[in-house]
Structures are given as structure tokens and as C-alpha cells.
Design a binder for these strands. Structure first.
Lengths: 326, 326
DNA sequence: TTGTAGGCGTTATCAC
DNA sequence: GTGATAACGCCTACAA
């Protein structure tokens, strides 16, 4: 900047003002400065800028367990894109940080507390989470996508997994299915636990805990395995609620292997309305997740905090999408 | 840091040395400093640190067109994870930047040139690319995953799409197929163009350009559409090379709709060995992409540059994976 | 409208 | 071993 000032025959202060469009600077000076910038090949040093301004214009997007997410859950892409759109609109830069190991969690935490970002969106965090701890401790403006328990200080945007699961299960019952099982997943997460709760509620007296088979992951593989087990426990099954579309896809595969037809012998419903849903044969009846909107809402939540406000959490509506699998 | 020094009764210089494990500092002083840090709740300011050290310990991962990539191409996840692993190993922080619009491209470019990262991995860039321009112009250590033409100054890690396509096509011919068509994609990218070239070479005299139908995208939808068109042009077709697994999945769907069996009536091969490959019915014969390894190689390429070396581009081997679709 | 100068929080180079 | 002190590159009163 010193060089630019010299070339343009003005002071560093004037260059700074010209660059930031702040304060007064004559047209003539501005022109000379622009010429000088091109000539010198000047690019602003943001470390210095951030240092004095105490602001980075960057917002973090922390995604846990990318193995599972990127490979199995297309919703993450929609959330990311939604967040990016809003953040970009506000002239900030979104930087996504992947946590793929305990070391990563530590490094990302220190990245966050190191002042590299002004705020953060946390996706798929668990209750006991090093990153969330760090965010809470330093008071970084943040928002969850999903709803980890025990973090009242950080607002979230979620869907009502429980009533969505209830609605979907009820619908399944209404089609006449009598022996309905559930392939549960991620019961240590609110999403997984709430889906099971909704399922249980909808079934009421007909609920049979023997017909719930759980797996830690929302994966296709989990669907194959848990469906096989469920069939072993109850060969006369005629309905299945899978905790996610990926799980449902695996379940359909297992059912086919076992010689059952879908939806003829057994009706299957999934959850998420992800790319899996239409790709399955038959296409899945499922719950639509408004992924992009969730991303947008989360971004808005942190932007609001940056503006000094204290927004409260958001629960977005979901729709049951009924297709051919049940 | 000033406060920490005061609480510990030492100078700022000593605190800095203690924090960075550089130079000498007595055990006693170290203990007092650690106590002071806890007491004051000190966290290092990286803007200041970066300013003086001219280094951020961060590396960018730029992904273009996330719509298409995250939603359709699971390989991107593997690349990301591979890159992340190597970068983390080297004690750097990976920050992924998504380019989802022209505005994004501009913003990401200025982020890169703003000194927020020490290097960058560029995924799925095109030849004429604002981000690559910026990287090249400021001489930021970088590497491509894939091989955009006309960027000799930036090393890349790629696979030999051409010979992979040739091998796969040859294999298809060996199964006895006589009327083989291709569903080409992304011909403006090296990957797309090379796959077509390999296909053409393998067929030699039997190549018939009428049997090549192209679409800009490597998508399921493109597969459905181009397959339908191809069938219209040549109802007697008995083999299809799809430019990607997603395209192949769409093609199988279209074939089924048209009353053809796979692999009975027509043999179908894909490319990528993505999640689609096993999810299809029947599972796809395809080319395996070593995604994680590509990510690792790309990271290594930029780390090497950071170490002052000048590594050259890498081409990774691929394998034909033969399954049931042909 | 422009120049001057202090300070942002660290690291690094010296003497001591 | 430790403590001054000078950068690092920029923004921003304040004075001119």
C-alpha cells in the first residue's frame, strides 16, 4: 500500500479511503490510485485488515462425519448451498470445515476460536461436541442445523422429526398395514430418537418393541442388515418405517432378496426425500426435508447475531410425499 | 497476551516463546504462564500471527458447481476426505470454498488472493476459470484435480480417461456386442472429451458417430434423455458406454422403460465406480476412480510447493470393474 | 479533501 | 533464560 501511495503521489491514508470507499477522496486521486494499483499489482493483505478491524467477513460451515454425510446424505448438499447463498448475499465468504477425526475436531475448534471466522453454522453436531463447546465458550455467533440437546445458548433450525414420523406412520397404518416394524438409526441423535418417538406414538397400542431394529448409521448397508434382522424376527411383517431413505433403499433390497415384493407384500416408507427416494424401485413414500431452506435459515440465524440481535430457533414444516413404495 | 504476561510476571516475548515452544523458557515461567492463560481466558489472535508470519496454515479446497457435484458425484466426497487427511496430517486446516455462481467465483478469487490460505486444491475447474486465473496470477501454490487445458503452470492429478475408456470399451466389445453407442457428457471438459476419444479409438472401424449422443451434464437425467434419443436412432443397439455411472443409471432406466433388458438385450457400462454403480440393478460394470487417492495426491502437490519444491503432475491408474450390467 | 500518526496482537532479533 | 523493541500492513481519528 505504501508503494501504491508513492506511485500515485498520495498518502497511505488516502489509498485506504479510496480502497474502502469510505470518507472523501477526489476523483483525480482515485484515478491515480487505481492506475498505481494496477501498475504495482497490489493486493490487500487481509491479515492486517482483519487485525485492525476485528472482522473477517468469513463464516464457517462445520460438517461432522463427512464420510456418512457426503456419501449417503444428499441433503447436506442442499443445506450447504442454501447457507452459501445467504452468506454470499451478505457479502461474506463461507468456508466449510470438515471434521473427520478427533484431531480434526481439535483443529477445527482452534480454527474457530482463532478468529478466522465471524460466525459458524454447525451441521450434524452431537450433544457432546468439542466444536460446539469451543463455539459456546468463546461466544462465537453460531447456529445448528438439527437440534442437539443441552445447548440452549446456540439457536438451531430443525424440523419436527417427531410429528413428521408420526404423520408418516399414521399414513402407513391407514393403508391397511398391521404388522409394522421400524428400522431405527442414530438413536443418539435427536433426529433418530425423535423419529422413533413419533413412530411409537403413532402406533399406540400396536407398538411392539420387538419390531424395532436399530443401527448407528443412516446408511444403505444399515438398511440391508436391519431389514434382514427384522424379517427374521417377524416373517409376517407387512410394513416398514425406515429412518432414512438410504435405509429404506437398503431395506427394499433386503426384502427383494428375501422374496418379498414392495409394496405388494410389504409397504416401505423412508425419510428425507433425498436423491434415493426417486432412484429406488419403486420410488419411496417419504418425508420431504427442506434442505436448502434449512441452510438459509441457519445462515440467517448467524447473520442476525452478527447484527447484534438475538434470534430464536426455527422449526421448519415438512411434507409427507406419498409415492409407490407403500 | 499482554495480560497473560502481566499475570505471570514475565514479558510478552516470553509468553510468545512458551506458546510456540520455540526458544528457551524455564519450567517455572512456563507453569506461571499456563496458569495465567487459564485465568485470563487467553486465546491467540491469528490475524496478528498471520500478519507477522506471512502464513495462515490454511489450504483452500475450491469446488465448482456443487449442485452437480455434491448431488450427483459421490467421488467429490472421497477427494475431499483424501485431501483433508493429508492436509490435516501436515497440521494445516482445510477450508472448502464452494463456487455456485459468478459472484461466488469473484468472491472466492479475492478470498484466495487475500492471503487467507497458503495454497489451494482446485476441483472440477474448467479451462476458462476466474479462480484459476487468480491463483495463477498471484502464484498461489495450487493443484488441480482433473486436467484443465492450458494451465501448464499449475500441476494436476488426473486419471487417464482415454485409456480407461478404451479398456472398458474393448472389454464391452469382447462380450460380443456389435452395435455399441455412447452417451457422452461434458465434452467441454478434458474428462468428457477423453472418454469419447478412448471410446472412438477402441471401436476403430466400427465407430459410428451417429451412435454418440451428448449432454453437457454427467447426470441421471442426462442418461435417461440421451438413452432415449440413442434408442430412437438405433433400435437394434446392443451395447452402451455411458460417460458416468449416473448417466448409466439413467440409461438403464430408459432401457427398461423401452422394454429392453439389461444385460440381456443391451450391455451397459458406466464410469467412476461411484455409489451409483452398486445401487443400480443390475450393478454396473465401470471404471474405478481412486477418489481418495486423487485427493491425497493433490494435497501432496500443494504441500510440496509449500516446501519450496516444484512437483510435477500425477496420473493415477484406474481399474475396470466388471459387474453384471454388461 | 488530504496527510499524520497511533495502534491492532504477534513474532523475532537483539542485547542483557 | 529473559526483556525490550522493531516490524508486519492496514484503518482511522485527528489535524491541517
Amino acid at each position: 500500500m505504501h508503494d501504491v501511495a508513492a506511485h500515485a503521489g498520495v498518502s497511505r491514508g488516502t489509498v485506504s479511503r479510496a480502497l474502502n470507499g469510505t470518507g472523501y477522496v477526489s476523483a483525480e486521486a482515485r484515478a491515480r490510485i487505481e492506475a498505481a494499483i494496477a501498475e504495482v499489482g497490489y493486493v490487500r493483505n487481509n491479515a492486517a485488515r482483519n487485525l485492525v478491524m476485528r472482522k473477517t467477513w468469513a463464516i464457517g460451515f462445520v460438517v461432522h462425519e463427512p464420510h456418512q454425510l457426503f456419501l449417503e446424505d444428499p441433503n447436506i448438499g442442499g443445506i450447504l448451498l442454501g447457507t452459501n447463498a445467504v452468506v454470499a448475499e451478505a457479502d461474506h465468504q463461507l468456508v466449510v470445515l470438515v471434521v473427520d477425526s478427533d484431531d480434526d475436531a481439535a483443529r477445527v475448534s482452534s480454527y474457530l476460536r482463532g478468529g478466522f471466522v465471524d460466525g459458524a453454522v454447525l451441521v450434524s453436531a452431537r450433544s457432546h461436541d468439542q466444536v460446539a463447546d469451543a463455539v459456546e465458550q468463546i461466544g462465537l455467533p453460531a447456529a445448528f442445523v438439527g437440534h442437539p440437546e443441552g445447548r440452549p445458548s446456540i439457536p438451531y433450525v430443525g424440523i419436527d422429526n417427531r410429528s413428521a414420523a408420526r404423520a408418516l406412520t399414521t399414513r402407513l397404518v391407514e393403508t391397511g398395514r398391521r404388522r409394522i416394524g421400524m428400522l431405527a438409526s442414530a438413536l443418539d441423535r435427536d433426529s433418530g430418537a425423535d423419529r422413533l418417538a413419533g413412530f411409537t406414538e403413532a402406533l399406540g397400542d400396536r407398538f411392539d418393541e420387538r419390531l424395532v431394529v436399530a443401527d448407528p448409521l443412516y446408511s444403505y448397508r444399515a438398511g440391508v442388515d436391519t431389514m434382514t434382522e427384522l424379517l427374521r424376527r417377524e416373517p409376517a411383517l407387512d410394513g416398514v418405517f425406515a429412518a432414512s431413505d438410504a435405509v429404506a433403499a437398503g431395506a427394499i433390497e433386503a426384502l427383494r432378496t428375501a422374496g418379498r415384493t414392495v409394496p405388494g407384500d410389504v409397504g416401505v416408507v423412508g425419510f428425507d426425500d433425498s436423491a434415493w427416494a426417486l432412484r429406488c424401485n419403486p420410488p419411496l413414500s417419504t418425508v420431504h426435508q427442506p434442505a436448502a431452506e434449512m441452510g438459509r435459515a441457519a445462515a440467517t440465524l448467524v447473520l442476525e447475531q452478527l447484527a447484534g440481535r438475538t434470534p430464536s430457533s426455527v422449526t421448519l414444516p415438512t411434507d409427507v410425499v406419498w409415492r409407490a413404495s407403500a
